[in-house]
């Protein structure tokens, strides 16, 4: 019975979410109603589909709660404290990797400019070697190396090798043969 609490909690959560969505979110964040009368034409409004989905979620969640109450069917492998510990570790790796990916290039370019380098903005250099690879290389390395570090729970040279290899190979696959493809984060500039 221990695990079936998860199913009941899940059902309760979705009942609550569906009610809030129907009562607060949908009325306040959609411009047109269920059925719209727009210049004589009667048509289906933007609210109908999400309302239908939310009502469905409400019904399915109630049915799920009822069946698990009357006919418990526990499952293994529910989330626990270890899951949270794992997720936090992964979050550190992902956030650090993405921050490096987005900011390494611009920060390096600005630093060179600050030291009197006059090489132009990062936007202008977003397709110039080596600047275009800086963010992808730094962020990509941290993502791959960090993820291996989390799982293996130790630093290893082999992991660093895999990370460097992944960055080089992916850069080669996507950047070299296709003239019009940009590696992250260069398309956002």
């Amino acid at each position: 019975m221990q695990q079936d609490r998860w199913t009941l909690a899940l059902a309760a959560l979705f009942v609550l979410a569906a009610v809030l969505t129907l009562a607060v979110w949908i009325p306040n964040d959609i411009e047109t109603g269920l059925i719209e009368r727009f210049r004589r034409e009667v048509m289906i409004g933007d609210a109908l589909a999400p309302t239908g989905a939310a009502v469905g979620v409400l019904i399915a969640a109630l049915a799920l709660g009822a069946t698990s109450w009357f006919r418990p069917d526990p499952f293994d492998d529910t989330p626990d404290r270890q899951s949270i510990a794992f997720l936090l570790r992964m979050a550190v790796v992902l956030v650090l990797g993405l921050v490096l990916m987005v900011f390494t290039g611009p920060v390096v370019v600005e630093s060179i400019n600050g030291l009197g380098g006059e090489i132009g903005t990062y936007r202008q250099l977003r397709d110039t070697v080596p600047y275009k690879y800086l963010g992808f290389a730094a962020g990509g390395f941290v993502l791959v190396f960090g993820a291996i570090r989390v799982v293996e729970n130790r630093f290893s040279m082999a992991a660093a090798g895999v990370a460097i290899g992944a960055v080089v190979v992916l850069g080669f696959i996507y950047d070299v043969p296709f003239d019009n493809l940009l590696l992250p984060p260069n398309g956002d500039q």
Binding site: L143, A147, I148, A158, L181, P184, P185
Partner: peptide, 25 residues
């Protein structure tokens, strides 16, 4: 675990070259 780590970089990269928007990642 090493291959999955590479997938963790490959997937966002592949999505990025199609969408060219960090928000897609």
């Amino acid at each position: 675990q090493r291959l999955l780590a590479v997938v963790l970089l490959l997937t966002p990269t592949a999505i990025y070259v199609q969408n060219t928007d960090m928000f897609a990642i």
